[in-house]
Design a protein around this nucleic acid. Structure first.
Lengths: 228, 228, 228, 228
DNA sequence: GACTAAACGAGACGGTACGTCGAGTCTTTGT
DNA sequence: ACAAAGACTCGACGTACCGTCTCGTTTAGTC
């Protein structure tokens, strides 16, 4: 509908269109997003219904649809909104300490109710166009923010030159996510410590170099590709 | 639309073979399960509808419901039915060769269309009671079947005593699944080789012992549990 | 969906597809149409809702939508279904008797609850594409069926040759509808008799000839057409 | 969409003139009522929406609701406002001339765009409490104002004493409305002349006396009242 | 080689949720 | 202080798919 846009264009530069973050609208927005997260936690993404969210938020269904065009967008915004609280970047002085602290923080987030709900949704809705970029952004940001942790260790001489920081971080988190997603084993501080130890050993052994710097076996056939 | 054609094909097949023991039911069952897998591949678990499956199978909706009480059970059986084809257990003589072969086989299965669909469904439907045990069975079986691979290496003296075979296998597969589920990076033979190398290094460093045999840090608070 | 049609084509000539008028379907159909008429009577066409009809019929909303694509079609079918009961064509021997009997029958129908509801709906929904043809059919049929009444009178010499039967009938009914639609005066047997008397007088005076046979004033400007 | 343009036009008028007595309110009122009539003409009463009217008038929806409590009242006022222009009362010297002129005037009004819209709305919304009195007022006024036309004819000896003026007028207009509402035949000057001729003949025949002055047949059963 | 029981085709049904539209009310803001 | 502009509640729209039911029609394996 061009009406609003044209109005904005006409009034642009004049009186403020509307300050966000105040008024009834902000309350409604917050209530709905909170209700969305709560529904995600309880029934999961697949069984989340807009009507359920609206009811829980004490708001009418059409009000939800006025702000968010569909279920995906609503969930996406709810996730984005609560992804701010992230795991901190540690600096303990030693790589081992840093990795353990990082791993434990991650486990702590993943086992907290909101973290669990957010993560499960991110995984379950990977195909949804509105959700996928959020997932990518969340994890890429996490990788990038924790790379200095490895860089410092290389500078301190704890790791060989040529070690890929991203690979180290991935090696830390991989077994944690494996247990969460595949084996459904419980994860706790011990899991975190073990993951950190593995990554440390591999890094010290010099096998965590960038992908393109590896010697052999690139792009060889994997052996059991299936027809069809 | 293939519906009519399939029906015609069936009816045009002349006098039915009348083989004793295999009735009409077997054909229907196979057609529906195949259609279910096809739908999983194309639209995914979330958007799979019984009506869509029935139509694709050239079968009426009620026929599907007669055999499978609901969507979950149908999908579960379709998955179980096609999970038989699994990755083989290698025996190359060296641990490094075994791990590489195993990792490449896994990557091959995960990147094949049916493997991709099955795996995605298993992940997406983790909460569904009918699906979860299938997932568990699939992966536990895989771990168990590949453990000898590590046991042999310990016997050969390639790895220290006390190394946990399951942990080694998990360390191999963890980065592969990480890329598949979290970072959405492409996976190929190089990914497989790198994963095998990391696991090998960690195992040799002696950090892949059973969880309960580790010294410290168990059950310590992880630091940022959230209230709620 | 071509499936059904093709199947029917294949089976054509074989066993009866499905006997209409029996089974649960017929009951539902009757209940919904009756409920529709009842709603028309009570709240009128404008405020008739499919949900209300469904509820009154003791049937679910989606069931209504399965049979009738929208409100208009539903109402149209309800009207068609109950329009069968029409006013009878009298034959008393004299034109005066015939016209009076006809007029009284019409008044009787118009003042009966179903007649009232049907008529009101037909008028109110004149613009609706599904309803308009029903209205036209109902009234045209009524005119045609009653024309013999006038033809006989001409043959008996009660009316001058050249009298237009349709015009006579229209002259009878016109004041009745006027009171119903415009002046909202009560209509009863006296109204009917007066209408018959007027038509009789006009017909005998020879002013009810076909439109094209009239002498003067055709197509002259009407004098206060408005601009715009 | 003219919305923005109209707004621009209004705002581009510079500082409001501020003539005392006629404020902005009067302009808004006129614009909204005009828009209402225009909407009635184009989409009809049933599909008229307050939002549509507001948009067409270049005014906010709530502005409409501030002045008119609901749709009915708004339409009622729009109609009342434009009903002033009525058909004139003729005086040609002869009853025949008077009736013809009156009938032609009426036809002229009914076939003009505003007349058509107003009339259709009046009919379609007969049940609406706010609209019904307007209809009654319009037509009663019309009858009353034209009765002298008959009274004069009686005085001139053109019609028998005891002729009911209102009945004569009704007899003129009845066939016109019949064609408009029931048979959907085109109406024009010929229709008007025919209607006048019929009324004249009936009046001369003495059948247009007051209802209570008729001899027989009052309140007799009409013969086909329906149960239910 | 006919007969019966199981399975299938067909279609309607109650039900839940979808995403949309418009009516009419209430709250916030600008002047 | 008041009117313009949103944003809200509410009810209904028409749609898709779920899982259930009943009825008739095939088909399979037995007597």
């Amino acid at each position: 509908m061009p009406t609003t846009q044209q109005k904005v264009a006409i009034k642009a530069g004049g009186p403020l269109p509307r300050r966000p973050g105040v008024g009834r609208g902000a309350k409604v927005r917050a209530a709905v997003l909170a209700a969305t997260l709560a529904e995600l936690t309880q029934v999961g993404y697949a069984d989340l219904s807009v009507e359920g969210v609206a009811q829980r938020a004490g708001v009418h269904k059409t009000t939800v649809y006025r702000r968010w065009p569909d279920r995906q967008t609503l969930v996406a915004e709810a996730l984005t909104d609560s992804v701010a609280r992230d795991v901190p970047v540690p600096d303990t002085g030693s790589l081992e300490g840093d990795l353990r602290t990082f791993a434990r923080s991650l486990v702590g987030w993943l086992t907290s109710p909101p973290g669990e709900a957010i993560f499960a949704t991110l995984i379950a809705a990977s195909r949804v166009p509105e959700i996928a970029p959020i997932k990518r952004a969340l994890f890429e940001d996490r990788f990038r923010r924790h790379e200095p942790l490895v860089t410092r260790a290389i500078a301190r001489g704890e790791l060989p030159h040529g070690t890929d920081p991203a690979e180290v971080i991935k090696t830390v988190i991989a077994p944690i996510y494996l247990r969460l997603l595949i084996t459904a084993e419980p994860i706790n501080a011990a899991t975190a410590d073990a993951a950190a130890a593995v990554a440390l050993a591999a890094a010290r052994a010099g096998v965590l170099r960038p992908p393109h710097a590896r010697p052999a076996g690139e792009d060889q056939p994997t052996g059991n590709q299936r027809r069809r």
